[in-house]
């Protein structure tokens, strides 16, 4: 498939798949006995959390590539992935809180996985603040790449701390089939895949915007404000 079709196909695919998932969530998958309708949030919460983690992994990969090749494209990919990751993890936290209120009776509980998701959100929000600073562009890209690597190294500690503390998260996809009915598992997996297309579209769109801005900055620097002023009628 030509590259130019992807920005059009991915959002269409993601949007259609997400719309199809609504049928799976509300018609195909049974309603959970104890929690009722609010359990449906899970089908959004899980994909958001997973794709947020994938976004942060993409920041890590892009940062490694930038450190070794100094490719501006990799830096812009990191920026797009970090913004998307912060957005998705923020939404995962909000949907998690709504679910926690119904499920555990509180808006927030210091469950290790929730806590560490919040910590990851803080880390990458700090990363975005660093990206917004007024620094020389190459220095900023370098500093962000180092932070992108260091930040992702915290992720294994997230999982370790989740195991040390007693988690109250349900086992979704465990070795024995997890705690979900087969229909619920299918719906959850379909939502993960659908949101994956949407995620790829978001990253592609944002990366495209950043590429365009970089191109305009280059053109502006080449012509210069004075040259642009001279060319005006």
């Amino acid at each position: 498939m030509p590259k130019s079709f992807l920005p059009l196909v991915l959002p269409l695919l993601g949007g259609t798949a997400l719309a199809g998932c609504q049928w799976l969530i509300y018609v195909y998958a049974p309603t959970e006995a104890s929690m009722g309708l609010i359990q449906k949030i899970f089908y959004l919460h899980l994909p958001l959390a997973w794709w947020a983690l994938v976004s942060f992994f993409l920041v890590f990969l892009g940062s490694v590539v930038y450190l070794f090749r100094r490719s501006p494209g990799a830096d812009r990919l990191c920026a797009a992935a970090a913004e998307t990751g912060v957005l998705l993890s923020g939404l995962a936290l909000v949907t998690g809180m709504l679910w926690a209120r119904k499920s555990w009776g509180v808006w927030w509980t210091w469950d290790p996985r929730l806590t560490t998701t919040l910590v990851m959100w803080f880390i990458y929000a700090g990363y975005l603040i660093l990206r917004g600073l007024n620094m020389p562009p190459q220095r900023k890209s370098l500093v962000c790449a180092v932070l992108g690597v260091v930040a992702f190294l915290d992720v294994p500690l997230v999982f370790v701390s989740a195991r040390i503390w007693r988690s109250i998260h349900p086992a979704v996809f465990g070795a024995q089939g997890g705690g979900l009915e087969p229909e619920m598992r299918l719906a959850a997996m379909a939502c993960v895949i659908a949101l994956g297309f949407f995620w790829a579209a978001l990253i592609g769109l944002r990366k495209g915007q950043l590429d365009l801005r970089a191109r305009m900055d280059t053109l502006w620097a080449g012509n210069g404000p004075s040259a642009a002023g001279r060319n005006r009628p």
Partner: peptide, 10 residues
């Protein structure tokens, strides 16, 4: 502080 504190949480 903004960058370091969240990383140090564990």
């Amino acid at each position: 502080g903004v960058v370091l504190f969240p990383l140090l949480t564990p």
